[in-house]
Design a protein around this nucleic acid. Structure first.
Lengths: 197, 197
DNA sequence: CCGCGCTGAATGGTCGTTCATTCAGGCCCT
DNA sequence: AGGGCCTGAATGAACGACCATTCAGCGCGG
């Protein structure tokens, strides 16, 4: 087995074990067993247990960012771009629930980690949303009463909360429905508008 | 010192230590030192370390629920009630940042805990929001296109995310501003409306 | 038969939890 | 009122389980 392949196997095992037990209750030896390697092998590919968590995050954010940028590339209408961003986010969550749980739940733990430079990819994710909002405002399609950066945070909060609910619930509602309602809330708000569709 | 007083001291110390180091990195002996008691004393008041975390949560949610219900009691207009709920939430966060950090960050860790019956108070918190939305819909003030329960989750996600940002940032924006923007987003949404205020 | 990737048993340090011991204060008997 | 007895809250040193990390050696491909 080639080296990158082994690295992948370990990362995948880590995601699955972290999701099942939480980071602190996960034993390195469990990850090794699930990856089909010896305990020591993990230390040939990662500095230590925490590094493993960080690499999971960086690896995941990398491909998520790539995917979102790719989706956005072909689009211009801000409303459609926002909708697409939301749908893509939930698609990613659905395609790997364990990964979603690790990234949303486990990572939140350590403020040490939250402040570290490794959070940059997260900032980039927010920037994609903020950009959509800003362009929408410039085109007059979105109201300019709220800062794009703020909206980005708010939207992420909702995506994260719904993902968490979905990951935890026994019989979760379909994510497609959640995507629709998320979009609805952000575009239209709560207020009833006579004659609005 | 009377027993309830000592219990309080330990709970307060736990909040402060958990907020500083995270639950798993916190040592029982650190909490004991900060509370000014011996290690063993903690076990006279709490079953074990995890129980300490749970009691912090139950204790906190109890007073938060009480406060929100009290605020809601005197109000009828759904819009105002929503605004008041949001403002009160941020007031509570501001009044005890360490507590806010523990409840929003540390508790998320254990899905074992998230699923346990002790989460009921959290369900009650969501129910307060859902109720406001539902009554607003019945009065025709709010659109009926989204389920109240869903809105409640979404709003909580935003409150939580903003609280987290506020707790982590070096020079956080004033929470009053966040309260305004949160309200704005949920009531009006993003879409520009010619002639709307 | 070299050396590289890998192994997994051994190590050492870290706490959560226990419990034998202390002692302040309340109670009763004279 | 004095003083001896008792209680149980509080203490903190010691214990032992647990696990991340290491490293001496193994075996396989070239």
């Amino acid at each position: 087995m080639s080296q990158p392949e082994k690295r992948r196997k370990i990362l995948d095992a880590a995601v699955s074990v972290f999701a099942r037990n939480g980071y602190y209750s996960s034993k390195v030896s469990d990850i090794a067993r699930e990856a089909g390697v010896a305990d020591g092998t993990i230390y040939l590919y990662f500095k230590n247990k925490e590094d493993l968590l960080i690499q999971v995050f960086l690896d995941t954010m990398g491909s998520i960012l790539e995917r979102q940028e790719q989706v956005q590339a072909g689009m211009t209408d801000p409303t459609e771009r926002l909708r697409a961003f939301i749908t893509t986010h939930y698609d990613l969550v659905a395609s790997s629930p364990a990964l979603a749980e690790v990234v949303t739940v486990e990572l939140r733990q350590s403020s040490k980690f939250m402040r570290s430079t490794d959070m940059k990819p997260f900032g980039k994710y927010l920037a994609i949303i903020a950009r959509i909002v800003q362009e929408g405002q410039e085109q007059g399609v979105f109201a300019s009463t709220v800062q794009p950066r703020r909206i980005a945070r708010a939207l992420f909060g909702v995506l994260d909360e719904f993902a968490l609910e979905w990951a935890m619930a026994e019989h979760p509602a379909p994510l497609a429905e959640m995507a629709d309602e998320t979009t609805q809330i952000f575009l239209e708000g709560l207020r009833a508008r006579p004659g609005a569709r």
